[in-house]
Design a protein around this nucleic acid. Structure first.
Lengths: 344, 344
DNA sequence: TTGAAAGCGCTAACAA
DNA sequence: TTGTTAGCGCTTTCAA
């Protein structure tokens, strides 16, 4: 069932059938109508490969998601949520989604995959900023948008939550509750969100005149074990904090578990706040206070930017693109039961 | 940079270049070597659309995942895990993954998409068994494998956990701890896993001589709210159960929350066991005892079956396929802190 | 407004 | 072992 069959049945040429099917202007209403009806009746479905081959665009976006951490047993909940949000947004934009793998580790593997599949654009999530693959990708000029990864290039940009502001809100929330000894369990120093969360934390602590004693800032890796380990360190301190801000819900929940197991009450003895708003956050007892990242909004924002770059590229393949600014979305403070007034 | 360029540079015909690139036997080692080197040097990357068009296969599998529940705010953690497991397995099998959407609700939308993209196979997850789209899909003859959905056809089959055995294990575990008043919060009656979990529960209860009083079997929908609601019902019973088996971790965790909020101790007053082994299960306090579904193994099993059907199809496009049997994988009892000896 | 024809980049049948 | 050639199904000039 191809376009030839449709054309023959409708008694027109293939060219005309194509024009009608693609809603081109130069075809007469009557003809268009007839072709469309016949295509419908015959169950005609255009062959995407043929179309992509000749149009040199696929209406498909590739998504690169480094699954190595998951392979090592770390779950990356948040990225999974992000994936869902992004998929929805792509659906709305009429773009297909191809999941790419990072198995091929060669420098330009990604750019090559993009070319091979005639991908219109690329999305990066959970990709290490030091991956050698990024530079050739930027150079290739394929429209690319990343989550939480500073990407700058002629057709590249990035989207993320405003982590600095988020961390500041966390400090504000705790400080407003009367806490003065506030510790932070940070993320890996190489990652942008971790950097900004730390920055926002330190900044706001200073602004509010709160000290950060030695040992009060620990580096985790966003995953539970590191959160638990850090919390044990915090509890062993001669003067332990009355509140802890963890740079991920996963670490926050693990930290809370350690506190509970140590016989402390949360939030009576120690308040804990996370960031992400994973589903687990509302499931655990006490339910976790956290800064919610809106993965739907992030997905939409990303797809929006990407679609715009693609559109611009199409309109003028070699023109200058206006510099793309990163989009930073606000987080939302969700107060649950793991934070309360400072003890005494 | 196309195959013509490679051929010209190597001083051979396009056909020979193609043969060398595709590792065909009829090409001389010297020629092959030369072509490969030149392709490498030129950064040649075959155009997938062109290849798909002529070969009529794409080495790509489509994954259909009904995101409507997520759109309604239900998370489907387990499917997300399954997606990850499946993606890994596909990578290993050298298959690309295309995420399909169910936006187009017409009966044969899926089969059409499969044809349009020349997809080699299809994976269904979280798809309602009553969806009208399934029948035309089966009829279309596209190799299709589903999770937790009885699919039978010339090139279709399915994979899932052995839910009946899983439920039986749950009963055994609780009964071994001395529980006699065991209730169950089931899943939606239309869904296969829910049916089998209920069946396994009732069967094993009978086998062990345990009664199931009226009101002891409640129907939920796998999501948290229904678990909480059901638990409230159970606690309101004149003689409340000492143990509850919930047909999903999400319901189990919510049920546990209700019990805790009602001032009961878990597992001292009531034991709770779930099924899935979501990440949250190990995060909540008390940590949830559950029956773990191995999503990696499920993914691998599914991809294995699918690849086999695809292979067979290729070898003999119109031959009879041997009847595919569904693959049922065992679950694993993970004993944590939410189950304990029966009270008194 | 329509049709004829070229060609997107590749594979594979056939011939040499 | 290699080359010539005919398409795969579609879009898009160009001419009518």
């Amino acid at each position: 069932m191809d376009i030839r069959e449709v054309a023959r049945t409708a008694g027109v040429s293939i060219a005309t059938a194509s024009r009608a099917l693609n809603d081109r202007a130069e075809v007469s209403p009557a003809t268009r109508q007839r072709v469309l009806e016949i295509a419908e009746r015959l169950g005609y479905q255009p062959n995407i490969s043929a179309r992509t081959l000749v149009r040199r665009r696929s209406d498909t976006v590739g998504l690169l998601w480094d699954s190595a951490p998951i392979r090592r047993g770390r779950s990356q909940r948040f990225l999974q949520d992000l994936l869902v949000g992004t998929k929805m947004a792509l659906d709305e934009a009429g773009l297909h989604l191809m999941l790419l793998s990072m198995r091929d580790q060669s420098r330009d593997a990604v750019a090559r995959q993009a070319r091979a599949h005639s991908l219109d654009g690329l999305i990066l999530m959970g990709v290490d900023p030091h991956t050698a693959a990024i530079e050739p990708l930027i150079d290739s000029g394929v429209p690319t948008l990343a989550f939480d990864l500073e990407l700058h290039g002629p057709a590249a940009s990035w989207v993320g939550s405003d982590n600095r502001a988020a961390a500041a809100s966390a400090v504000d929330h705790l400080a407003d509750l009367g806490h003065r000894r506030i510790a932070m369990i940070g993320g890996p120093a190489t990652m942008l969100p971790a950097q900004n969360r730390l920055l926002g934390f330190l900044e706001r602590m200073r602004q509010r005149g709160l000290e950060v004693p030695p040992g009060y800032v620990l580096e985790g890796d966003f995953f539970q074990d590191s959160g638990a380990g850090a919390m044990r360190g915090l509890l062993a301190l001669p003067e332990r904090p009355t509140a802890v801000f963890a740079a991920s819900d996963e670490m926050a929940i693990a930290a809370m578990g350690v506190a509970l197991d140590a016989g402390l009450s949360v939030p009576e003895d120690v308040s804990i706040i996370g960031i992400d708003d994973l589903e687990s956050a509302s499931l655990v007892r006490p339910a976790l206070t956290t800064l919610a990242q809106d993965h739907w909004a992030l997905g939409r924002a990303l797809v929006h930017c990407l679609a715009e770059i693609i559109e611009r590229r199409r309109a003028d393949p070699h023109g200058e693109l206006p510099a793309q600014l990163p989009v930073l979305l606000p987080t939302r403070l969700v107060i649950r039961d793991s934070t309360g007034p400072a003890p005494r």
